[in-house]
Amino acid sequence: MTLIAVVTIFILAVFVGLEVIAKVPQTLHTPLMSATNAIHGVILVGGVIVLATASEPVGYTVGFLAALFGVLNVVGGFVVTDRMLEMFKRKPKKEESK
């Protein structure tokens, strides 16, 4: 990818982030922080790449740790967020189903 393409993508992502977030109500801030926390776990993609391309002990060790940390970030992040949001939904569900 050319540098200008990469910079364009990044800058536009930043602007989308600013726009989308400004509208979230305060009550959802904790789940939101948790969800964005899980989303930056996308670094796991980087972790997978460096571990897959490792070829000697240091590469294996550091790559493994990077991947492990990334998995923890992604899985833990999404599960925690889901647990929080599950609580927001429970009440209306009960009224509908029971």
């Binding site: 993508i9 930043v14 982030g17 989308v20 801030h29 964005t36 670094i43 980087g46």
Partner: peptide, 27 residues
């Protein structure tokens, strides 16, 4: 993570990282 996307030339990192970098700051 977004910066790591520059290093690896990976769009998922660029966008995911950029989004969170901006949203986290707003929050």
């Amino acid at each position: 993570a977004g910066l790591a996307g520059f290093v690896l030339g990976n769009t998922s990192l660029l966008i995911g990282g950029g989004l969170v970098g901006a949203s986290g700051f707003i929050l």
